[in-house]
Design a protein around this nucleic acid. Structure first.
Length: 804
DNA sequence: GCGGATCAC
DNA sequence: TATGGTGATCCGC
């Protein structure tokens, strides 16, 4: 079946082309144009082929899921039902209907802007701007903490505003029509901000007041009235209409704003039944977070509406990941966040570009550099440094690949980013050699940003590094790979005019008949200069080599070593290491263990609902007991549920402020995953779990104090701040040393020559096991042990050992 | 951590 | 209609 669909689509494309070919007048077209048409068609089909491929992958996922479903027994399903329904009770109890959340959505934002700007109105400057502008000017009045979502959406929590508003006099709720616009012919006033500032009416001019009042509206105090007012003001100000949803939580508000689009609003009353009524026939696709693929998968299970999502909750819990089915459950119950999250810190920054096929390494490298430059600029604007660089490539068949590498010290400059990205790119180029890498998109991303504390700490360490490292300086070496080596320095030959500019120029040249002289020269210049920078680069690299090898500072004792024999250096460091590890004496004070700040919210319990649920559960429990015999899981989980009720606000728990960096880093690594993990498991196994976490995360931690290096992120076997600090300094030297070791062939490096010379390959294995692994899918992998820890084949204190 | 995928805007 | 760009998250490894 799939085959047929596939080929018939291709036939469609071919058929169209064939028809075109036979069309009258076709003979007039020259070869080039025909080629172009074919190219277009091929491009289209490439895209389409890929779409088909992706679709088939989804189909396979569905098939797998269906097979899984077939194997589910009635008992399993009943048991699942029991468990899920207990959770439903929990969720019901925590249902919070006390907030009033508004979602504002500009109607057909861009189209509207276009329409409004295009006609004769264009010369009138109107500050449309983004939602964040309406922020500032209108929305803050209703919620100072409102959150804009992109350019045309925003969430507001108007709960407090509603309370205050109750006491407001009428004039404070009065707004005026922008009469000029409608009366003036041929356009509207250049000042759409008319009456924007709630100016009180002037009592000494009664007639003016009368007229004004005639052109005004007074809004009431209800949520609906507030939202009408907001929409009115937005329209007066921007000439654009907006739709809005009012509901007890963000998810509902968002879905609600969709209901009466365009230029309408809708409210879900803060009552459980109103929520469920709204959801009853709502297609799941309308739910934010459920996209094309999820929709298709659920459809395969016969689930199209939210109520069906609820009906199938037990099945879903068996077929989907914990995170997924719990999300489904939240959706089907109409639960969502009742407060607006502050924008968290950004997690990554990237830039990517699509272009016509680029297939020469040279072009690819210089494009890569350009992307790195752009990205570096943006990063520096926000003062960010990250540890992971990801290269994204889309080949001409629309297949997307990402390749990432995490480095020891964070990067932010063009050079630093490019140094990593070019390696990744090199690998990809090599992997298809001798064929060219044919790409239509390239992107570079930096993630793994340093936290504020880490930044501070690193700075401190850098200072000491500078003091001790002096001559070794920051010179970077690049373990060269044939085609990469050539491009470590940019083709600065063309300081102005981006890669694309040059490409454009070249393309223009191609299409023009006689290559005119100046353009020709330009091209020639490019070619020549690229050859030139290869040479230049070699020089720089050589220089670096000679410089670095002459003076080397031992990362342990910080003494300068005169030798440039790496083996000798290695021996020295070994000695230093065996000496330094023993002499840690200073203790750092223990921290108190209060790490949870509990936010309270009062659960609203509708007793009849709970009873209803409980009845059902009881029935099921009976059925289950008779069906399953020797399964301890059921009974133990029942206990779990009874235990967790007392400590509900689990999701809202946040780490408290941490006084020291070490603790902070530890928290990040070990506690965060716990917060993510599921309520019941987590609570029930609290102590046990914590122990396990620490055993896998901190090998050899004595007592509570554990230091984790903010640079390499690995835990340190010391309680001494002095030696910990020293390690951090060493870490900063590490990159340099690593490259030194790469230059010479160290024995540990030679196993697996294929990929070990990539930065990512080298850094692997030194990180501590992520304790979150396996906690997400409860039951599947219960205990991840220490086994994943850095395995090393060599127990000697070589440089490599030390760093691993 | 990595890589592929999904999703939103 | 098809296509981009940016950022987040999840899942399996």
């Amino acid at each position: 079946m799939k085959k047929v669909g596939n080929s018939s689509c291709n036939d469609g494309v071919l058929l169209r082309m064939g028809l075109n070919d036979n069309k009258a007048g076709m003979q007039g077209l020259d070869k080039e144009k025909i080629n172009k048409i074919i190219m277009e068609a091929t491009k289209g089909s490439r895209f389409y082929e890929n779409e088909l491929k992706k679709d088939q992958q989804v189909n396979q996922r569905i098939e797998k899921m269906m097979q899984l479903k077939e194997k589910i027994t009635t008992q399993q399903l009943l048991k699942a039902q029991l468990q899920v329904d207990k959770l439903v009770i929990e969720l019901e109890q925590s249902r919070n209907l006390s907030s009033t959340i508004v979602h504002i959505d500009m109607d057909a934002f861009y189209a509207a802007v276009e329409m409004r700007d295009n006609p004769e109105l264009k010369e009138k400057p109107i500050a449309v701007g983004s939602m964040s502008m309406l922020v500032r000017e209108i929305l803050t009045e209703y919620d100072p903490n409102f959150t804009p979502m992109g350019l045309d959406e925003a969430y507001l929590n108007i709960t407090e505003h509603l309370e205050e508003r109750l006491n407001w006099p009428e004039d404070k709720r009065r707004f005026f029509f922008n009469t000029e616009r409608t009366t003036e012919k041929g356009g509207y006033s250049s000042s759409p901000v008319l009456f924007e500032d709630n100016t009180p009416l002037m009592d000494d001019h009664p007639e003016q007041r009368d007229q004004s009042v005639a052109n005004s509206v007074v809004f009431g105090t209800s949520a609906e009235e507030v939202v009408k007012e907001i929409r009115f003001r937005i329209e007066q100000k921007t000439q654009l209409t907006a739709s809005a949803g009012i509901a007890p939580n963000t998810m509902l508000a968002k879905m609600c704003s969709d209901r009466n689009k365009p230029n309408g609003q809708c409210r879900i009353a803060p009552e459980r039944q109103a929520v469920l009524d709204f959801l009853k026939d709502l297609p799941i696709r309308k739910v934010p977070g459920i996209g094309k693929v999820t929709e298709k998968m659920l459809k395969a299970l016969g689930i199209v509406t939210c109520s069906e999502l609820y009906q199938q909750r037990a099945l879903l819990s068996l077929l989907f990941s914990e995170a997924s089915w719990r999300n489904f459950l939240d959706i089907s119950l109409g639960l969502g966040s009742t407060h607006l999250e502050k924008d968290g810190e950004r997690k990554s920054m990237s830039t990517e570009r699509t272009f016509n096929e680029i297939n020469t390494a040279e072009d690819q490298y210089s494009l890569c550099r350009e992307l790195c430059r752009d990205l570096a600029q943006e990063l520096q604007k926000e003062g960010l440094k990250g540890k992971t660089v990801t290269l994204k490539l889309k080949n001409v068949n629309f297949e997307v690949k990402t390749r990432a590498s995490t480095v020891l010290s964070s990067v932010s400059t063009e050079e630093e980013i490019f140094a990593v990205a070019k390696d990744l790119l090199g690998t990809e180029i090599d992997s298809v050699a001798p064929h060219p890498l044919r790409i239509r998109l390239m992107g570079v991303r930096v993630s793994g940003f340093l936290s504020e504390e880490e930044k501070k700490y690193q700075q401190k360490s850098i200072t000491s590094f500078l003091k001790s490292g002096k001559e070794t300086s920051f010179l970077r070496l690049h373990a060269g790979k044939s085609n990469q080596e050539c491009f470590t320095k940019n083709s600065e030959s063309s300081p102005r005019g981006s890669f694309f500019d040059k490409k454009r120029a070249a393309r223009q040249l191609n299409s023009e008949n006689p290559p005119n002289e100046t353009v020709g020269k330009q091209l020639f210049h490019d070619k020549k200069s690229s050859a030139h920078f290869v040479e230049e680069t070699k020089k720089v690299t050589d220089l670096q080599n000679s410089n670095v090898c002459k003076i080397f500072t031992c990362p342990v004792c910080f003494e300068e070593q005169s030798s440039n024999n790496l083996e000798e250096l290695n021996r020295h460091i070994d000695e230093c290491l065996s000496g330094s590890l023993v002499k840690d004496t200073m203790e750092i004070p223990k921290n108190d263990n209060s790490r949870e700040s509990t936010l309270n919210f009062l659960p609203q319990i509708k007793s009849e609902n709970v009873d209803e649920c409980q009845n059902k559960v009881d029935q099921l429990a009976g059925a289950d007991q008779s069906a399953s015999t020797s399964d301890s899981c059921t009974s133990s989980s029942t206990e779990k549920f009874t235990q967790i009720t007392s400590d509900k606000p689990h999701r809202e728990r946040q780490p408290s402020n941490l006084s020291d960096i070490a603790r902070n880093v530890c928290m990040k690594q070990c506690l965060l995953p716990k917060r993510i993990s599921e309520d019941n498991e987590d609570h029930f196994e609290k102590t046990e779990h914590t122990e396990e976490t620490s055993s896998s995360c901190f090998f050899e931690a004595k007592g509570d104090s554990v230091l984790v290096c903010p640079v390499c992120n690995s835990e340190q076997k010391t309680n001494s701040l002095v030696s910990f600090n020293r390690h951090v300094d060493v870490c900063l030297n590490k990159g340099l040393i690593q490259e030194l070791t790469e230059k010479k062939d160290f024995p540990t490096k030679t196993y697996n020559m294929e990929n070990s010379n990539r930065v990512g390959g080298l850094s692997r294995g030194q990180q501590c096991t992520n304790p979150s692994q396996g906690t997400k899918r409860s039951g599947l992998t219960t205990s991840q042990s220490v086994s994943k820890k850095a395995k090393s084949s060599n127990s000697k204190h070589t440089i490599d050992m030390f760093f691993k």
